[in-house]
Simulated assay, not measured.
Amino acid sequence: MKSLQDTLYNWLTIKIVSLERPDDTAAVETEEMFAAMLRDEHELSNIEIEKDDVMYYVHYDQNGERKKSRFPRELIEVMLNQINSEPEKYVNYPED
């Protein structure tokens, strides 16, 4: 099992991609996988994302407590920026 911090980081990174590219089936499926890990392995609920000019904040409930983690935007948006800078490498192939 990955740490909660690692799972939140991976989920948030791909969540930002899937929000920007809702037709990207790989991104959507990967986000769903990490979301399930957050729910099932780490027992998180009521997950909310907030951002400002510098950070992303993930608010969530765990074990009856409201908690918050934060991540620098430049780290979270690196995958989306890479996809946007070289879209030909990240073609979404339709399912057959």
Results as ranks from 00 to 15, higher is better:
73 R>I: 01
36 A>P: 06
58 V>L: 00
29 E>P: 02
66 R>G: 05
89 K>Q: 10
58 V>Q: 00
24 D>V: 11
29 E>G: 10
73 R>W: 02
62 Q>I: 00
89 K>R: 15
57 Y>G: 08
34 F>G: 01
69 S>Y: 01
69 S>H: 01
36 A>Y: 08
54 V>E: 14
15 K>S: 01
96 D>G: 14
19 L>K: 13
35 A>P: 00
33 M>S: 13
10 N>W: 07
2 K>Q: 11
27 A>D: 02
75 L>P: 09
40 D>V: 13
7 T>H: 13
63 N>E: 08
14 I>N: 03
1 M>I: 08
81 N>D: 15
22 P>Y: 09
37 M>N: 13
3 S>H: 11
87 P>E: 10
63 N>W: 06
34 F>W: 09
95 E>T: 15
28 V>M: 07
62 Q>T: 01
49 I>F: 06
23 D>K: 11
29 E>C: 07
93 Y>T: 06
12 L>G: 01
58 V>K: 00
43 E>F: 11
59 H>P: 06
65 E>I: 09
2 K>N: 10
9 Y>M: 08
69 S>Q: 00
36 A>S: 12
54 V>C: 09
21 R>H: 11
15 K>E: 01
83 I>Y: 14
14 I>T: 08
64 G>V: 12
95 E>K: 14
61 D>P: 03
39 R>N: 06
94 P>Y: 12
81 N>P: 08
80 L>P: 02
51 K>H: 14
11 W>F: 15
86 E>F: 13
2 K>Y: 09
5 Q>T: 11
94 P>C: 08
85 S>E: 14
21 R>F: 10
81 N>L: 09
49 I>H: 04
29 E>M: 15
38 L>I: 03
